[in-house]
Design a protein around this nucleic acid. Structure first.
Lengths: 208, 208
DNA sequence: TGAGCTACTGACTGTTCGGTCAGTTGACTG
DNA sequence: CAGTCAACTGACCGAACAGTCAGTAGCTCA
């Protein structure tokens, strides 16, 4: 009996996790298409193939679904970016790793990125977003670059510049490029775009 | 009688314009603080010091107020930027003019910029925005830079690069810097920030 | 002074939608 | 097969809110 309880519990949890993931995926699609305000819980339920009540068995509110969708994609992206940047040797390669990871990830997770960038925009007006520990994840990404640049400077790879500003600049360059792809203003191979962006950034910061 | 009608009409129009502007200013404040969805028409009315019904005497819908607020600031910004960029001689000065105008304007019209950037973010998810002739104004700004860069290339000021990409890059750099200021991640004098950004961009694109 | 007119008001309406909960289904057990 | 239980359902509720319109205030002009 004592040994059975944890087993059943696990089985139940697996099912619950499956449902949660199912709902989350549906929600991501709907939010990406209509934005937070434009999406209704009924729509999400329909997309997930369940009744509205079921949604509320797994998430306490609409906002929670939204943040869950955001958090899921965001932490995966952050982890991947960190891995790639840390794995690169030189500053040049680190910058390429940063830009490339974001651009590729965007191509594979368009829905997530739509939500992500819409939310970044809303952070300016809606304060709620900023208190959700979500600002931090974004700033951590910048810090990743900042550290790399500091290191590069000390090794003489880059000229002496305020690392924080430069890190923001590269992050902004990348964010813009991704946005333009999402909106359809830019086309062409990712490789070429990465090349161009890294080239620009590198010329801007390298010590000759 | 025939000569009186246009006079009275003018007087009436002046009053109407005044009210419109009054409402618009109030709306800008409310939208900047709460975003489109978060703002209610009642709130705007209260901020403007009029009853809700009055709002609807001057604007047909909430969306229309929003777009009016956006359009007003946007066309002023676009005009000013164009003037400054066209007024500059060299490519280097044109880029500085672009960056500086935006950063200064942001400082003076924070409310407008909050709405502007929130909307740029929402353009990714909400298609309505994209059909409102509003996308064009943004792209025109980029085209301004693009032309300058093409000219600079032909004069040997800049190395040979796809002008459109570079124009987007500078626009993104600027947009990011302004966003960071709005959110409070960056401080310090505008002059210094302009210097840094232009320096980075220029090193990136100049022909040695 | 009072008739006419227009800018303005704010209570009201219809609708949308987040969230609830009494009831149903179906799997499992003894 | 009957009984139990948990996952699931969807009609329902109440709040929020965009937009309306009958009524008021106050100015103008005869």
């Amino acid at each position: 009996m004592i040994s059975e309880t944890p087993q059943r519990r696990t089985k139940k949890d697996v099912l619950a996790e499956f449902r949660q993931a199912e709902i989350l995926a549906a929600a991501q699609g709907v939010f990406a298409e209509k934005g937070f305000a434009g999406a209704s819980v009924d729509e999400i339920a329909q997309a997930a193939g369940v009744a509205k009540g079921t949604i509320y068995l797994y998430y306490p509110s609409k906002r929670d679904i939204y943040f869950a969708a955001l958090r899921e994609g965001l932490s995966a992206l952050a982890a991947k970016t960190q891995e790639k940047v840390w794995g690169a040797e030189t500053l040049h390669d680190k910058i390429r790793a940063y830009v490339e990871t974001k651009l590729r990830y965007c191509d594979e997770h368009r829905d997530f990125f739509k939500i992500y960038f819409a939310e970044l925009g809303n952070m300016v007006t809606q304060h709620e977003t900023r208190d959700s520990g979500f600002e931090k994840v974004f700033l951590d990404q910048v810090a990743l670059l900042e550290d790399a640049i500091r290191l590069g400077e000390s090794l003489g790879e880059a000229r002496d510049l305020p690392a924080r500003y430069v890190a923001f600049a590269i992050a902004n360059l990348t964010r813009g490029a991704v946005t333009q792809r999402l909106v359809g203003w830019t086309e062409g191979s990712i490789e070429r775009e990465v090349e161009l962006l890294v080239d620009l950034a590198w010329k801007g910061i390298s010590s000759q």
